[in-house]
């Protein structure tokens, strides 16, 4: 069973520049794979994703990589939008189509209430998400 979630972010523009800061970036000279290590922070517009490690996956035109298609974050991920904060173990942020898939003890807090589950897929363009796997909702009753 799953729960649909409406996200607060309506104005997400996936062509905004993506800025990644980290302690270290290493590029494998055989495969060309780029990996960010050490408190990595990915910022695009008002959306921010921080993780221990982020691997860059290229979209390839023929054999030559011609841009970033996905960022695979691991070692504990927090994903923050203006209205929500989401914790998970891993996340795959597809820059190409503006979708995020978080998995591993996902906890989404939105204002007062929180939802927990196994995996959460978000579509930032549409501003919607779907939580699946042992979904539990936590309400804080009647805060004054």
């Amino acid at each position: 069973q799953g729960a649909d979630i409406a996200l607060g972010t309506q104005t997400f523009d996936r062509t905004q520049p993506v800025e990644v800061t980290a302690d270290e970036l290493s590029i494998d000279q055989a495969s060309g794979q780029a990996v960010f290590d050490g408190n990595v922070l990915v910022v695009q517009g008002e959306v921010r994703l921080s993780a221990g490690k982020v691997t860059v996956e290229y979209s390839t035109e023929g054999t030559a990589p011609n841009g970033v298609s996905r960022l695979i974050a691991s070692d504990g991920v927090t994903f923050v939008t203006p209205a929500e904060a989401i914790e998970a173990r891993e996340a795959t942020y597809s820059v190409a189509d503006g979708t995020v898939r978080l998995s591993g003890d996902v906890i989404l807090t939105q204002g007062q209430n929180a939802i927990a589950g196994e995996t959460l897929t978000l579509d930032l363009n549409a501003g919607s998400g779907r939580m699946e796997g042992r979904v539990r909702t936590v309400f804080t009753p009647g805060g004054n």
Binding site: R14, P17, V18, V20, T21, F36, G67, V68
Partner: peptide, 8 residues
Amino acid sequence: GVRLIYRP
């Protein structure tokens, strides 16, 4: 301190 900017 690494900083990368990628323009989709």
